[in-house]
Design a protein around this nucleic acid. Sequence first.
RNA 1: GCCGGUGUGGCGGAAUGGCAGACGCGGAGCACUCAAAAUGCUCUGCCUUCACGGGCGUGUGGGUUCGAGUCCCACCACCGGCACCA
Length: 836
Amino acid sequence: MSHEQTAHATAEKYDFAAIQEKWLPVWDALKPFATDDATDERPRKYVLDMFSYPSGDLHMGHAEAFGLCDVLARYWRQRGYNVLHPVGWDSFGLPAENAAIKRGADPRDWTYGNIEQQKASFRVYAPSFDWSREIHTSDPEYYQWNQWLFLKLYEKGLAYRKASPVNWCPNDQTVLANEQVVDGMCERCGAVVTKRNLTQWYFRITAYADRLVDDLTQLEGAWPAKVLSMQRNWVGRSTGADVVFGIEGRDEPVTVYTTRPDTLFGVTYMAVAPDSALAAELAAGATSAVQTEFAAYLEKTKTESDIDRQSTDREKTGVFLDRYATHPLTGDRIPIWAADYVLADYGHGAVMGVPAHDQRDLDFARALDLPVRVVVAPDGTLTDVDDPAETGTALSGDGLLVNSGTFDGLSKDEAIDALTTALGEAGAGETATNYRLRDWLISRQRYWGTPIPIIHCDSCGEVPVPESQLPVKLPAAEGLDLRPKGTSPLGGADDWATVDCPSCGGSARRDSDTMDTFVDSSWYFLRFLSPNSDEVAFDVAEAKKWAPVDQYVGGVEHAILHLLYARFMTKVLHDYGYVDFEEPFTALLNQGMVLMDGQKMSKSVGNLVEFADQMHSYGADALRVTLAFAGPPEDDIDWADVSPTGSTKFLARAWRIAHDVSSGPGIDVSTGDTALRKLVHHFLADVPDLIESYKFNVAVARLMELVNVTRKAIDKGPGAADAAVREAAETIAVALNVFAPYTAEDMWELLGYEPTVAHVEWRQAEPALLVEDEVTAVVQVNGKVRGRLQVSPSIMPDELERLARGDANVQRAIGEAEITNVIVRAPKIVSIATAR
RNA sequence: GCCGGUGUGGCGGAAUGGCAGACGCGGAGCACUCAAAAUGCUCUGCCUUCACGGGCGUGUGGGUUCGAGUCCCACCACCGGCACCA
């Protein structure tokens, strides 16, 4: 196949490389997707991909995500919407720094070099981006607004510093947010995460816990059910009661949280987290033997990694503190233990032990020989109950109360209400809600991120950098030691770090930590609306016009991290009055992963499918069609199962139709072949619903069908000059723009039009052409298809039944049997039931 | 343990409760060709029949219905998320 021969509109053969080369410069000049809405009255749609982290060239995952998102962007444009489809780079982050350390280079050079590479690849892959709004989160023009946001949160007490045990990655030598610890390991490098006690910056996301859960109902149906469920799990809201226990020898009582106040009479011990202040205090008031034992236990707890500590099948341990609590209703003495299965930072760091009805408590009680008292029995009597102390299985189900004084006989739900009320009357408890969610730890002891705009002054304490002094620019990497060492490299930039206190003018130092890069991505979708403003983070009026994002596309790996943070930040901005909505992304599509031979692609496995190689072999269009056609977009695609060659064949067939059409543009299509026109108009009527419900694979199938039938019409039907053939070819070109823009543009030119087909509106189906003159009616006998009849769609039911009964094959199926029932749904079906 | 999801040909996958397997991959045969590639055409769920046809068939077992891949109940398998969260 020779390029010279085919790089013209007169080419005889489909040549994807020539077509790409031909149209790229045309599109570069045309800038068809710049969204300039000053005078545009059309309805708007904001279609966005999760932006790319520039860690190298694009890979197949990008091809899928950006390809599918582009289907939607191009589609909505052709449906008459003013579509905003911007592109940017999530360009701060650890990998840049690690790569830079490895190569002895500047993270800035590495990052911006990768961006250039990805841009060049994107240009050829040709998503319909508005390049004029490109942003980089690592530019001071962007990150100064991270700092501005930080100050806004700080003003409201939503950004604060505290000393606390934090997740520490010993490999990357930095702290991690809870969301970045996966199975006890660092999300980035896989090292086992340990705990350190450090003073760090937090965003108070827990203040928004209820709204983060409640507002998910707004997204029901528009976000994948899986993501909604993951977000609910992550916030982990539970309701129950706080119960107050008096402590012998201590003035202050201790409050515990329980979801099962109905089991209050089953309490046989109390357990406190060994690493809590309460445990230390209780132990300090006990005998020296207890103190020694406790100290050893605490030491052991601290040195254990989270993985060890959280393994559920391990033996329960604890230390009796020789202290006692008093049961709020019975007045019984309750022994107090320190046990490492109790977490210091959930609830109140202490639990009431109900071994009979909680598996963990039962395991603990059995290991340490504590009593087990059943207080909820399935049928309200103890006689038939398997003793959990014997079986080792806690009774966690429903039942009626026993052994619970005046509460005996109540159901579980009744008892929860009754006991909570009783506790309230006794001043010993109330309904309470708890969350698994923790505040968002945003400090990072690394270089390549947004400097935290705080100055530490010996006399004034922490002083926010005045807004007028933003941005606090990142100092040059040159001369700084970027290697992980547990403190931020910025601390080594003395010239940068040493400043006058904005408050007292004395000598002070800048905070040397940088922000978690998820801060950058928590609001970037708003920056696209006024990307060049140096007055505001984003223009409120532009946000009113464009935001929230109507269609968001990205991987499910961000189901909690990015999406939760972006939802949080949106609510914060809403409360400040900067935006008038509370959810940033009204619809979300999670595309699946691209696999090879059933597993994730990786260099080490040796199953890497390179984006650049695929582009070279098949081109952008075939790649995009292959990804769209492979299956439902949410499902993973195994590259071993798909056929880019098949896609190329399809595109060549489509292209050849435009090439073969022999009528001129503007011909009166109504004179064309009716059968073909009907198919075209059914296509026009059906495909929008398919695309809007993300059934891209089915939409492509319908396009293939249309191409096949049009080919037949040219070769064996009305021929290449027929007006319906032109109508079909134009329809194919317009629809194909959504999936394969180069081929579509070339077809459009072959059909005698000017670029660009991307601006041609989807045609309306003519209702008259959607009506069939004849349909197939099916005749079933006892549920089995026994006959098919060609009938008019307006046939009367009794006429259809008469025809059905007259069908020879139907009669044979009925035989001598007596007909007991006949259902007629004209014109589709006749269902005959016989006595059997 | 809790939550969510998925089970359809050799494979990827279609199917508002109404013809299961659209579309494609793979396979077989044919045409064109000296030949091959490319392209085009025909066939392709399993069993049975020369054929017309018939039987079976959407993870398993029940149920609702004239009619179930689709709805209901129970179960099995696999995938994903959360998890000593009280």
